[in-house]
Amino acid sequence: MFLKYLFYLLIFPGFLFASVFGMIVGWVDRKVSARVQFRVGPPFFQNFYDIFKLWGKEVILVKNSPYFIFLIAPIIAFASVLITSTLVGTAFFFNLSIGGDLIFIIYLMMIYSVALILGASSTGNIYSSIGAGREMKLLLSDELAFILVILVPIIQAGYKIDLTQILIYQQANGMIIGSASGIIAFIVGIICLQAKMAMQPFDIAHAETEIIDGVLIEYSGTLLAFWKLSHFIMYVFLPMLLVILFWGGISFASVGSIIAGVLKYLLIVVLMILIKNTNPRIRIDTAISFFWKYASPLALVAVILAIFGV
């Protein structure tokens, strides 16, 4: 029993699978972005080379800074992302879930952002603190919309907070994306994912050309590799979560259904990459007003529609 859980965490939906698959999806991101800009793009193993190289580089600690927080923040973030991906992965592939895992997932994703804020503000770098402030504001703005989006399938499935219960409901009554509230929540959900993944137009906390990778500016070597790897793993489980919540997951009954499941996942990923490539970065105040004035009320409408069963 214990060995089985260890297998889940370290090998199949967890560490090994999520990192390898995440780096491959990261390559898809870079390749599609390159093709959109009429470039050739990096080779297939590029992200593997990058991570391996970062493991061997020197780690530099900042003088007069709380080393402990600086060192522990990437590890906390990586652990929380890893557990989230294991939870989503077991529900996606094996139809297994612990009780109330959606609440657990919401908390763990918040821990990732909090670790990012702590790590960035521990360095004392100006750009890093600007990045930390922006990450905090972005968290405050997208979290409400994200929770409301997750509420829609919960309500439709009859107030069940397990991923497997939502899948069972969808097998019996059709996909949630087919209903009016489902499609609204799905669209808002993709925008929230964009913000959670720090992709354009919401890469405000990183902003490579403006505040020089903001939150990650002082990280080097192995610690940077942890941050990059956490980001790659988010590529794996966030679209998977949307597929489970709205699109009926994946079924291993026949080859056709497996291909359909993979296509659903890929469609969401490519959609996110295209949004990333066609939208320039917005300012933090625009992002806040966008989420509070438009995205959250829209998600609230979806929740009200779901309560009335539309």
């Binding site: 390159a34 050739v40 793009g41 990058d50 020089i212 990778d213 990650l216 990280y219 940077l224």
Partner: peptide, 20 residues
Amino acid sequence: PGYDIERFGIKLVGSVRHAD
């Protein structure tokens, strides 16, 4: 796009802590 050094895995970074 004319030269595209990302083909060789070369990337321009903004922070000296990430540089090779």
